[in-house]
Amino acid sequence: MDDNIIEVRGLKTYYYTATKVIPAADDINFSMKRGEVLGIVGESGCGKTTVARSLVGLINRQNTRIEAGEILFEGIDLAKATPKQLEHIRGNKISMIFQDPFVSLSPVYTVGNQIAEVMRAHSTGKVDKKKERETIIELMRKVGIPSPELRIKDYAYQLSGGMQQRIMIAIALACRPDILIADEPTTALDVTVQAQVLELIRNLKDEFSMSVILISHNLGIVANMCDRILVMYGGVVVEEGSCYDIFKNPRHPYTRGLLMAIPSLKEDREELFSIPGTVPTFTAPVSTCRFADRCPHACDRCREKEPDFVDIGPGHRARCIFADKEVLNA
């Protein structure tokens, strides 16, 4: 495992509905080093949240199953861990923040109490109330809450969206996690506030020496924040590489299409490149390239079986039969 803090191998998480089986995360492989920021990017429904929730066991076992795979973290396999073990991991080692802070915060406890709860679960021994309060205020100050001594008594509804997300981050950091999973942490926020919250995450990552998994549908955000990036489509990772690889030498037609489809601030294009068709949902098992119906390069071979990863360079690979071929440039 060398210096990898977490290693995911062949993870499959499927949802069972009345009529079909949705392979929302289908053979996901990645590892992450300490201090690294890993981005997971893709359009809605591609499986980003499913991957994140699988890692920490926040899945509804009634209709959701981890079909296969390993999630190796500190010598245990989280894919097979008991609910109790997972709860311990979530309270101490891996924290998660979500898109909508208001929904995630409790309406009946003050934000101070909610931070305290996490700290108590984490610490052993007797609580020194006064010291606890100081620690909470310090943490609130760290995440950029003005006058935390007053805000500590506020309820979620009394705070703006940006402040709520800061509180979520404070709660997530209260246990000093090794890994922070941030699932679309700024999607509900305005851009000027988003820039503040992302800067906060970046600074705290260094200060707390955490690793961060940053999930976003926004290519600009992952370009700015991440060391490495996974691009997801239809439940699989279609391309994986360094931030530079993904943006400067994308080798999957989907990654390339997405980058061309977003309007650029730098240059004006009369017409945007657009990927035809709609974002699909698949039913297990899938036996074609998932992008084939929308891909300008698709051929019969793409529909025979799901393509394997093709290695392009160190740490850079893409799930396309043409990933290392010239034709993509045509």
Partner: peptide, 16 residues
């Protein structure tokens, strides 16, 4: 504050 999808250009400063 706009994050630009290009890792080689500096962008997204929290100015406010």
């Amino acid at each position: 504050s706009i994050p630009i999808p290009d890792p080689t250009v500096p962008s997204m400063k929290a100015e406010l």
